[in-house]
């Protein structure tokens, strides 16, 4: 489903991604972990071209983007359609209700009939457990509810791949569960997902594959058991130790 080849990204002199290669099969949930500054968020943003990679290729479901030369706008927009992004800070549209947020993509971009888009949006909001909150504005919702609207908004576009950028990092601890639950259901339904997260329990429970990134490279990859129970690389062990220590303080 996703084929990434030698992906590079620099901000000026700072090289953030130093050659990423990755294949993700259809229906797989891939979790990316790593210390802050490791480039994992940049990597995810490159898959939706919110950052334009400096070199390399990405193909999603056969749609290929080659970043060795500047891409025309049309191609960027076409490529973006393959995936949808869920943001750390939700980035809901504050001037629209939950329902309008979810309908916006289908109506404005895909030009789907309003009534049809509305029915679909209602269905999606019901699915993420927000049937009762459809007509509320984002400021009237809790963080966890806002993030679930964010997920529904992304799903409304019927993307082939869902990208999650630390979707629970901005949430109060008691609200993390409801968002992870929705994500878990998606994974079980067979959605192809790339998730950047610090939620190790989610990674252990849901991921088909875990990637450990550091300093712009994928250092180690494997099943959750391989990475969490038998890490091979020294840096992976250090990182996991730090996280476990933080948990036991």
């Amino acid at each position: 489903m996703i084929a990434i080849n030698n992906l590079h990204k620099s901000f000026g002199d700072l090289e953030v991604l130093k050659g990423i290669d990755l294949n993700v099969e259809k229906g797989q949930a891939v979790v990316v972990i790593g210390p802050s500054g490791s480039g994992k968020t940049t990597f995810l943003r490159c898959l939706n071209i919110l950052e334009t990679p400096t070199a390399g290729t990405v193909a999603i479901d056969g749609h290929m983007a080659d970043f060795s030369k500047p891409l025309p706008k049309k191609q960027i927009m076409g490529f973006r359609k393959q995936s949808a992004m869920v943001f750390q800070h939700y980035n809901l549209f504050p001037h629209m209700t939950a329902l309008e947020n979810v309908m916006e993509g289908p109506v404005t971009v895909q030009k789907i009939d309003r009534a049809e888009a509305r029915a679909k949006a209602e269905e999606l909001l019901t699915k993420v457990g927000l049937k009762e909150k459809m007509n509320e504005y984002p400021f009237q919702l809790s963080g966890g509810q806002q993030q679930r609207v964010g997920i529904a908004r992304a799903l409304a576009l019927e993307p082939k791949v869902m990208l999650f950028d630390e979707p629970t990092s901005a949430l109060d601890p008691e609200l993390v569960g409801e968002v992870l639950q929705v994500m878990k259901e998606l994974a079980l339904e067979g959605m192809t997902m790339v998730v950047v997260t610090h939620e190790m329990r989610f990674a252990k429970g849901v991921a088909d594959e875990v990637l450990f990134m550091d300093a712009g490279r994928i250092i180690e990859r494997g099943t959750p058991q391989e990475i969490f129970d038998h890490p091979k690389e020294e840096r992976t062990k250090q990182f996991l130790n730090l996280i476990q220590n933080a948990d036991t303080i």
């Binding site: 939706n48 919110l50 992004m85 980035n91 549209f93």
Partner: peptide, 27 residues
């Protein structure tokens, strides 16, 4: 208007003018 609003508009497939008209200018 926060940069995240542009990004959210882009990620749901909006063009510059759509993002401007539907998301940025109303706010």
């Amino acid at each position: 208007i926060p940069k995240g609003q542009w990004e959210a508009a882009n990620t749901i497939g909006m063009s510059y003018s759509q993002a401007l008209k539907r998301i940025i200018l109303p706010q």
